[in-house]
């Protein structure tokens, strides 16, 4: 009955070869029960652009037992040993199901790179860094991706530095935009300094903005300019409640 296993493996390998969408590859020598698989580091992660090689052994009891997999390519990830490449993933142990395949297992590993689980670590040191110093984690993971997986070097501060850093930057960018929108709303589109000159005289900012509107001050696209004294008088008069 061992021939069923060989037959299934040949079909699985053919299936992977005929799929050029997932960018998953497998190769083997004379023994089709010992393969090397590979996949691309997922986009938006520190592993992006890297190629990860996986050592695959098909056990005697396959598919009733999971394929035995480990990373040949060194990778900085909490669920993979940075020393041995051993992997902590339930799909490859207790959650293995005989309807899964070598290809689905490789896709699970690819997905593991996007979804690190530091609370169930294979490598405690890496997990600790991810939890406590996520920016540094992204930096080291990207460095390793460059050094071992052939990922292009990341230009820090310009291109994406990794999942965590990128998301933090997105967040920062978003709040800057929000601040800007808020500021524009608060200052009615006028230059902050020009408004604040009146605020510092003891007037409420909203009232100053309303007075600018009333008098018809040019907002000049929010840029500062020297306001004519006549206008300044009109604004002051308005603020003091003079007709």
């Amino acid at each position: 009955m061992a021939s069923n296993r060989a037959r299934r493996m040949r079909k699985e390998i053919a299936d992977i070869h005929s799929d050029d969408v997932s960018k998953i590859t497998v190769s083997h020598g004379d023994d089709i029960m010992h393969l090397k698989g590979s996949f691309q580091g997922p986009p938006g992660t520190p592993y992006e652009g890297g190629t990860y090689v996986i050592d695959i052994s098909i056990p005697q009891e396959y598919p009733f037992r999971p394929p035995i997999m480990k990373f040949d390519t060194k990778v900085w990830h909490p669920n993979v040993s940075s020393q041995t490449g051993a992997i902590c993933l339930d799909t490859l142990s207790s959650a293995w199901s005989p309807v899964l395949t070598v290809k689905s297992a490789l896709l699970s590993l690819q997905s593991l790179l996007s979804t690190p689980e530091p609370n169930d670590p294979q490598d405690a040191e890496v997990a600790k860094m991810l939890k406590e110093r996520p920016k540094e984690f992204d930096r080291v993971a990207a460095e390793w991706a460059n050094k071992y997986a052939g990922a292009p070097r990341k230009d820090r501060g310009e291109s994406s530095g990794g999942a965590t850093e990128e998301s933090m930057r997105r967040k920062a960018r978003k709040s800057k935009e929000e601040e800007e929108a808020e500021r524009v709303a608060q200052y009615g589109g006028y230059n902050e300094r020009m408004i604040d000159d009146f605020v510092s005289m003891g007037f409420d900012r909203d009232r100053v903005v309303a007075a600018f509107d009333f008098v018809g001050i040019d907002n000049n696209g929010g840029e500062w300019y020297e306001m004519e004294e006549a206008y300044m008088g009109d604004i002051t008069a308005r603020l003091l409640g003079e007709p």
Binding site: M1, A2, N4, R5, E61
Partner: peptide, 12 residues
């Protein structure tokens, strides 16, 4: 059936 050091047939 434990063919080939395995019980593959009955596992199937």
């Amino acid at each position: 059936n434990e063919d080939d050091m395995s019980d593959e047939h009955s596992r199937e």
